[in-house]
Simulated scan of single mutants.
Amino acid sequence: MTTRIDTRFAALKREGRAGLVTFVTAGDPDPATSLAILKALPAAGADVIELGMPFSDPMSDGPTIQASSQRALANGQTLAKTLDLVRAFREHDDTTPIVLMGYFNPIYVHGVERFLTEAKAAGVDGLIVVDLPPEEDDELCVPAVKAGINFVRLLTPTTDAARMPAVLANTSGFLYYVSITGVTGTAKPDFAAVGRAVAAVKAKTPLPVAVGFGVRTADDAAAIAASADAVVVGSALVAAIKSALDSNDAATEATVAAAAALVRELAGGVRGARRSAAE
């Protein structure tokens, strides 16, 4: 079954460039503004959208994304409302892939079968669930793939050759290579090391490889795009949203524009890098 993710990465390959994957937290800072930001991302240059499912204990996220989850939860965001957000986005955009990213607990509480049925109907294309290792694939990964939803796995600098086959076994859509050790938004990647790691991963799988964690600027994005199939930007974008909130963390007239402006800048870096490489 071909998903929007498969279609988008095939198109990027034909264009000879890397893609830009943008992460925002569902419901941050409020549901209406969150939807407006989602709608603005593709026009600004996002090729794939990762939509964070707010959770009270986001152990893999740095303080910037943790704070965005808290803002969303404080404004009543739930998993059901996150699916409503996807559904509303799909009324205007039926081509941009959406990957829900988060933790298993909210899905488990919602009910796995119910969640997958509702997610597929809403227009979700993929899942990244950071606290489910390959040993737990029967919990969610295998049912998701059967439902026609890609299950995207994280690879890290500490994933060794012995572990790689298990990580790759049921992964689909793309692989997400974490460019640093630690939580999101806390360090700058070693771009040369990332290039070597991406090459090593590509020797093991035909799946596209997206690289994230620590990408903040157009130059960062361009450096990653030289070797990866996509560049993932999360904390920097969430920080841009936060910077355009008022003192009470409420949206202002500048909030959506701030998000779109950063995405345009990053998209320019990604697209320029791949065009230069092709010349």
Rank of each mutant, 00 (worst) to 15 (best):
V145A: 11
L85D: 10
A273T: 12
F115T: 04
T25H: 04
F55N: 06
I98Y: 08
P189Y: 07
V124G: 01
I37Y: 00
P54R: 05
S68V: 12
D160Y: 10
E279T: 07
V129Y: 04
A236H: 03
L73A: 03
A222K: 03
G195I: 11
A11F: 12
G185T: 01
G126T: 07
G268V: 06
V129L: 11
V231D: 00
E265T: 13
V99M: 06
Q70E: 14
A26E: 02
A230G: 13
P29F: 02
S68M: 09
S68Q: 08
A244L: 10
V209P: 04
T205W: 08
A260Q: 05
A228P: 05
C141G: 04
I5P: 01
T117H: 14
G148F: 02
D246Y: 05
A261C: 10
G212M: 09
R163Y: 01
V152C: 09
A277E: 12
A169K: 12
A169G: 08
T255R: 02
A122C: 14
Q77Y: 05
R17H: 13
T252P: 14
P54W: 02
V112C: 11
M53E: 07
L132G: 08
Y176D: 12
E135L: 14
V256Y: 00
R8F: 08
I49S: 01
R8Y: 09
S179W: 02
D47S: 02
I241T: 07
A187H: 13
T96P: 04
G19Q: 09
R153F: 05
P58M: 09
P134F: 13
V142L: 12
Y103L: 06
S179M: 08
R264Q: 15
R216Y: 12
D61Y: 13
T64Y: 08
A239E: 14
R271N: 06
L100W: 06
G16Q: 13
T156G: 13
S69L: 06
F89E: 05
T25Q: 06
M1S: 15
L83D: 09
G52I: 11
S247D: 15
I65K: 06
I128F: 09
M164N: 11
K146T: 10
M59A: 13
P63C: 12
Y103G: 04
L73H: 02
M164A: 12
P54D: 09
T3M: 10
T184I: 14
R87Q: 13
N248S: 14
P106Y: 07
S243C: 11
Y103R: 01
T22Q: 08
D249Y: 03
